[in-house]
């Protein structure tokens, strides 16, 4: 696998295609039906968010796409291959809520880790990490160690690392979940720019309604017990393609409209499931996003 290679993905056809997906966990306390009858298709270059209350299976769905977890039923293909083949071919880059940087490696060496594991030579690795450090604005931190960086910077490194092999698909599980609101908005804007530059499709798990609204072409709203798709909100109809957005949009009426649409889809889910608790968890004052939510809340 050479560093300069652009992963050979068909320009047409789906980046991710999930059909009739089921996932049951067998645990000591019984079985957990984490996902039921999930159908999702993510087009090449498209940004799709998964949103829903805790425990509705967002992470499980992402992990199944990444072949970190096996489905109990249904099919998953990534660029037309089965999930395992796609993982072995390094067709996706991945980032989690925890940056997962290796504390004993420099920032540059952390970004180069996947390249190193896949036998890319030192010169090409350094060139690529320098490029990526520039992309996430951390060039002067190349030789630092992770514990010398703030949480937001570490997360930027993790995103740079996920881009190391120029994947056409990014899988992100609440990558900004642990960041403060200001940093979070900056990172969102940066992610929009990165997506525009790389043209990668993204599957993005989040708890935050405004985050989903700002970043996504489409928002998949899920409901728990068992994890199902409640509704799919087409944000791009009103807000335009995700990769063309700018910070100004955050104060645009259309943006509030998208927030409300996602919100209502979520509430509809919890109402029909008869679990007001679920909705509480998203919009309640304990949630990380309550400040945003208040924008649309009648005062």
């Amino acid at each position: 696998m050479s560093s300069g290679r652009k992963n050979a993905a068909p320009t047409t056809g789906a980046a991710v295609s999930v059909g009739r997906l089921d996932k049951v966990f067998d645990t000591k306390g019984g079985t957990v039906h984490a996902l039921q009858g999930i159908d999702v298709e993510v087009a090449a270059g498209e940004f799709v968010s998964l949103i829903g209350p805790s425990g509705c299976g967002k992470s499980t769905l992402l992990r199944i796409i990444a072949d970190l977890e096996q489905p109990t039923g249904g099919t998953v293909t990534v660029f037309g291959k089965d999930a395992r083949r796609a993982r072995l071919d390094q067709d996706y880059g991945i980032a989690f809520q925890q940056s997962g940087l290796l504390g004993w490696r420099t920032i540059a060496a952390n970004i180069e880790l996947p390249l190193e594991l896949h036998g890319v030579g030192a010169r090409d690795r350094h060139a690529r990490s320098a490029e990526l450090l520039d992309l996430v604005g951390l060039t002067e931190f190349a030789d630092r160690f992770p514990d010398q960086l703030s949480g937001g910077m570490q997360q930027r490194v993790a995103i740079a690392r996920s881009l190391a092999e120029r994947p056409n698909l990014l899988l992100m599980d609440e990558p900004f979940g642990a960041l403060d609101e200001m940093t979070r908005e900056r990172m969102q804007t940066e992610l929009v720019r990165i997506c525009a530059e790389t043209g990668a499709a993204v599957v993005f798990v989040t708890h935050s309604i405004p985050e989903a609204a700002f970043l996504s072409d489409r928002v998949v709203v899920m409901s728990p017990r068992p994890g199902r798709i409640q509704r799919v909100v087409d944000v791009d109809v009103d807000l335009g393609p995700a990769h063309e957005r700018t910070d100004a949009l955050r104060e645009d009426r259309r943006f509030f409209g998208a927030v409300t649409a996602i919100r209502e889809a979520l509430h509809a889910g919890s109402a029909s499931a008869g679990t007001p608790d679920g909705a509480q968890r998203i919009t309640g004052p304990t949630g990380p996003d309550d400040r945003h939510d208040r924008l649309t809340e009648p005062a």
């Binding site: 970190l68 989690f96 997962g100 880790l113 594991l117």
Partner: peptide, 10 residues
């Protein structure tokens, strides 16, 4: 998270 990453990197 580290084990997941290593698995993702095959």
């Amino acid at each position: 998270v580290h084990r997941d990453l290593m698995r993702a990197y095959a």
